[in-house]
Design a protein around this nucleic acid. Structure first.
Lengths: 226, 226
DNA sequence: ACAAACTTTTAGTCTGGCCTAAATTTATAG
DNA sequence: CTATAAATTTAGGCCAGACTAAAAGTTTGT
């Protein structure tokens, strides 16, 4: 136990997440995600790559990747975050657009004991309220399944697998129209040139169709139904 | 909302508590309570007394007292702490000797919303698991009732009002012999010269008597029964 | 292939909160 | 009342983690 600072935890988590969703981890992207200046990121990355234990591999101008030690920490933090999101939702009645901010703060301070207790109370769940997989205590994580809704074409039917958790207003809107994990949707129509995609929610095909822009349809991951 | 650091919250809470239990707030006592060097306390106190808003009044070598702004913050932190202790105990099954350490970390990061939700779930309680009063959201606090058990004499009967929460091992021992808030105890015998005080727990006067040293009997606060 | 544009790194600074060592003030005992 | 002890404050530093400005490296368009 080497007393890892909150800042380091945040960097490792952010690196993991950028790796997951965009494949590459650039200094700028990291800076934006963390809300700090790019130069600050360079400084921190250097420390993470030099200090022992090393949490990242790094070569100048070449980007950064997590070592297995770094990934371990990142997954622990993400486990905390997602268990907390689910606990806040189930036990304390938070709505799914409120859980992220609170979990963000709590994730760095809860003990293993706390983690274990809420995991048990929740029945060792595998997904958080947004459909993201919860890493295990052993450091493994299930596949963040689903493909972006933006990839579907008219007529296709799908189940919502997960929704990005970082935009509270968007989450509120989506919940309002019934787009939550496990909801079934049908693509009614897709306009060309990144125009809006129209979806109907639920099995009844007489429900109103909702027009969703690119940014929105990229935030929703679905699994096609046969 | 001026973004108060965790360190400042800890200082204000510690000043409040020292004021409560010992009446005086010395640099050294504060340093020991916070686990920092006395010189560090002097430095922080100066900032707390100079920066706006001022949280303490301070004159060199004369000790420190909270301003009303400082007391307000201290009571908010203590409210968080005590609500958390109770929540951890009731909702997550922590034993009363475990709650303090976890609450210590959580108290600085939970939102008002979190505070309100657990307060509601707990039924707006007035005391934490150790019998300490929980400050209200408005910044008032009930009397921390009870007198030290060490002040009683043989034959007196009393109800345990509260027990100091800072010594986990002691709490475990006391719970083991039945000394918890609201337990009834009878002083069987008191040895002179700060020798042990013997108490029986519970209404049956045929139960075994326990010998308690000064430090222990100073940590237990009781209300005399008629 | 080369300049413009963008990204990343270097260099130097700042702040918060801690430290030790030394000086000073207050308290206490004879 | 004074000498020593104890408590407190000053002085000077350190480290983490941020910042800005400027330099250097990389990418891209023509």
């Amino acid at each position: 136990m080497e007393a890892i600072s909150h800042a380091v935890e945040d960097y490792l988590k952010a690196i993991y997440e950028l790796q997951e969703d965009t494949g590459k981890v650039s200094t700028n992207a990291l800076a934006e995600k963390l809300g700090v200046a790019p130069a600050s990121v360079t400084g921190m990355i250097k420390k993470l790559a030099e200090d022992r234990p090393r949490f990242v591999d790094y070569e100048k101008h070449r980007g950064v990747t997590l070592t297995s030690a770094g990934r371990k920490i990142a997954l622990e933090v993400i486990r905390h975050h997602r268990l907390l999101e689910l606990y806040l939702h189930q036990a304390l009645g938070y709505s799914w657009d409120e859980v992220d901010a609170e979990a963000e703060k709590l994730e760095h301070v809860i003990s293993e004991d706390f983690e274990d207790r809420i995991a048990t109370i929740l029945g060792n769940p595998e997904r958080d309220p947004h459909g993201d997989p919860i890493p295990t205590k052993e450091g493994t994580i299930a596949d963040p399944c689903g493909q972006p809704l933006s990839g579907l074409t008219a007529g296709q039917q799908a189940r919502v697998a997960r929704v990005r958790d970082d935009d509270s207003a968007l989450l509120r809107y989506l919940a309002g129209i019934g787009i939550v994990p496990d909801a079934v949707i049908v693509v009614a129509d897709k306009a060309p040139f990144n125009g809006p995609l129209h979806v109907r929610v639920g099995p009844q095909s007489d429900s109103p169709a909702h027009a969703l822009g690119k940014q929105v349809t990229d935030s929703i991951y679905v699994e096609l139904k046969p």
